[in-house]
Design a binder for these strands. Structure first.
Lengths: 145, 145
DNA sequence: TTTCAATGGTTACAAATGAAACCAGTTTGG
DNA sequence: CCAAACTGGTTTCATTTGTAACCATTGAAA
């Protein structure tokens, strides 16, 4: 009879892997600032790009618009970001980090990088090349899907 | 100033990748049988191993015990599995698929395999090797973590 | 034995999520 | 122009999830 080995089934392995890594990493921004993942991504997106609209944020960080909306609301409540109505299109708001938001971002960046470095540090050079190549290939294969 | 490129940050890329793949794949069991992911994993685990306890299921398919509990309850409601109290330890229940559960499982297996084959089919041989190698390496690096 | 810690599993509650409805404001086609 | 379709963003509601408390049973220790 035909069976499926979950252990070697790619969708399952990817999910479990991402879940584990993401859970580990989330401890950093959860413990340090009590952020949720959408909040962290919002902080990170704005820190990286400087200013973005909610829609752009959603695209850049692969979040559903309701997640963005709520994350932005929370960061605004903390006074970590401000909204400025767009001059040309009054539906749009330009989001930007405040000084406090930027400070939190600046604090998180080295921690994030250290986390990644530590994780990849457990791999051999070849393995690092392999994961980079494989992930990129799958990303490409899913383009537009 | 130090910034973090989300686009190339491994935890983010892995998560997004897994999320996309998993979402695509979930359409199959969602549309066909209205299953949730925990339910699919439960079906899949029992189909593969024949009989397991809830705890074993959780370990094998990386699910929190409450997810297992609820998924098992739902599959039982559908009469896709049965619980048999363990002789030696009355806290434990041995779970097994019924004929109907097995039928559903047998129907899903080829679809799952086809999905994986199609996905990997979009990659070159080298890329397939790379993803397999990279994922295995990361899994190894996270052992016990 | 009796008690206490550990284990298998369920349940209750709060928080996170997604789908769809919604409210502006904007664009487009007639 | 102006209605209809569309877009940016929020809110509502139902579902899913995680944490912690819980119940029952078992094992270990005194």
């Amino acid at each position: 009879m035909e069976i499926l080995e979950l252990e070697s089934f790619l969708p399952y392995r990817l999910y479990r892997l991402a879940d584990t890594v993401s859970r580990e990493f989330s401890r950093i921004y959860k413990e340090r600032h009590g952020l949720t993942r959408p909040e962290w991504r919002t902080l990170s997106g704005l820190g990286e790009r400087g200013t973005m609209t909610a829609t752009e944020l959603g695209e850049q960080s692969a979040m559903h618009k309701t997640k963005v909306s709520r994350a932005v609301a929370e960061l605004e409540r903390r006074r970590w970001l401000t909204r400025t109505p767009d001059e040309n299109d009054r539906r749009v708001e330009r989001l930007a980090l405040t000084r406090a938001g930027l400070a939190a971002y600046r604090e998180m960046v080295p921690l994030a990088k250290a986390f990644e470095r530590e994780l990849l540090g457990r791999l051999s050079v070849d393995e690092r090349v392999a994961i980079a190549r494989g992930v990129a290939a799958l990303e490409g294969a899913l383009e537009g899907k």
